[in-house]
Design a protein around this nucleic acid. Structure first.
Ligand SMILES: [Mn+2]
Ligand SMILES: [Mn+2]
Ligand SMILES: [Mn+2]
Ligand SMILES: [Mn+2]
Lengths: 226, 226
DNA sequence: CTTCAATTTTAGATTTGTCTAAAATTAATT
DNA sequence: AATTAATTTTAGACAAATCTAAAATTGAAG
């Protein structure tokens, strides 16, 4: 049940890619891992051999149950370490990804469970992504970008796709942060800009460009609240 | 300035071995790393190539200044992580070595400096070994085993060589822990057993076997105190 | 000073993960 | 349907880290 660093990186990347599309392609995975398609094919054979992957050559691939379990464990570790780095070591949320990319491969199960307890069993990482629990259950919350949302649905900001300083400046200025609750009040088809409303604030307008990069989640419990 | 996991493990092991003897031998290093002499020779060539090592074939080897610096950084990381595991995650001091053996290879300098600050710049790890500071300065304290000590010298328990449950039981029973201050009151040449005295306690006798496995340090400040 | 044993190094293989360049397959266009 | 383009896989190579077995060197004993 212990996989190499490279295998864990592949499993995790496949997991994320197959969330979007059902099947993952060789090129997409190579791009995500900044490696070459030929290298991906090599690895796919090994992962299939180890029965972590459903794969027929030229046909695309996806994780099977075993592979998904392994991937979720890596994601759990990644996100718990990110939380630790931000909440305990005072790193900024934009500084922790690369470090967590290394820490996620530390193998001790006891370590990660104790870290989880030490942190108070956090539910989401510093980017708003849910942290799988110790049984590997990953909270499925619908996540889309703000641009694809209907009017008057209350949602929670859960992430930012492009985290450039310029983008962050816009959000800062409009008092939008992780966890902020907001709803769309009006859409302007002319330029696909939106007017949104944050509680206790005047409405503001966001460009289509910005809206595409703001990721939001809607728990059922949040939208159907009464 | 970044070395592979295997190279870091070699550097660290050489560092520890050359503390005892000036020059390290191929066989000794192979034993310490649980690998083969031929593998050690292979690695020695690479480390010499990278100018971390003084090495002439068949002649033994030792780290040069660069190599020592690299080794000390690994040791710093190892001991800080051990401290974290024990003090923050509630691991026992006998459970943390293997986990730290992995964590010591995480490369981020910022991470280790922040971890150090988060822990309050501890001076020694859970086994009583000194933690190098961020400049790589390693406190040199004379360390020997209790068996090799003169009478009436006050010393501090800094480590236990053989940490078997049986050994720990003896120490527990005699109220000897890390940091305990004690001195030898009498030596019995018949069986090389010792009578020692811990402050506020009646004297107790330790066998030569036990005395050999109790490591103690004597800071100059401690023995010459006035 | 030889001879033998222990230590150390070399020679040659193996495993894992990666790459480039070329071939195979699939998808898209005329 | 035939050609072209894109994608994917194979073939072959390479670097890093390890191993076994054999050769070289050193050191100890006789
Ligand atoms: Mn990673
Ligand atoms: Mn994250
Ligand atoms: Mn290690
Ligand atoms: Mn230690």
């Amino acid at each position: 049940m212990k996989y190499s660093v490279s295998k864990e990186n592949h499993l995790k990347a496949i997991f994320h890619l197959q969330q979007e599309q059902g099947l993952v392609t060789t090129n997409a995975l190579a791009a995500a891992l900044r490696t070459r398609p030929a290298s991906v094919t090599d690895m796919l054979k090994k992962l299939k051999e180890q029965k972590l992957l459903i794969y027929e050559r030229y046909k695309g691939f996806k994780l099977n149950t075993e592979g998904r379990k392994a991937a979720v464990q890596v994601i759990r570790k990644h996100r718990l370490w990110e939380y630790f780095l931000v909440k305990k070591l005072q790193f900024g949320w934009d500084e922790v990804h690369d470090i967590a990319e290394e820490l996620e491969h530390i193998s001790s199960r006891a370590l990660i469970d104790r870290l989880d307890a030490f942190l108070g069993h956090p539910e989401t990482d510093p980017h708003g992504d849910p942290i799988p629990d110790s049984q590997g259950r990953l909270q499925v919350r619908r996540q889309t970008c703000l641009a694809d949302l209907p009017l008057n649905k209350t949602v929670q900001v859960s992430g930012v796709a492009s985290q450039t300083p310029e983008m962050m400046e816009v959000l800062q200025h409009n008092h939008i942060r992780l966890g902020t609750r907001l709803e769309i009040k009006k859409k302007f088809p002319f330029d696909d800009s939106l007017e949104i409303k944050v509680r206790n604030r005047p409405p503001v307008t966001l460009s289509a460009r910005v809206a595409k990069n703001v990721l939001v989640t809607y728990d059922e419990s949040l939208t159907e609240r009464r």
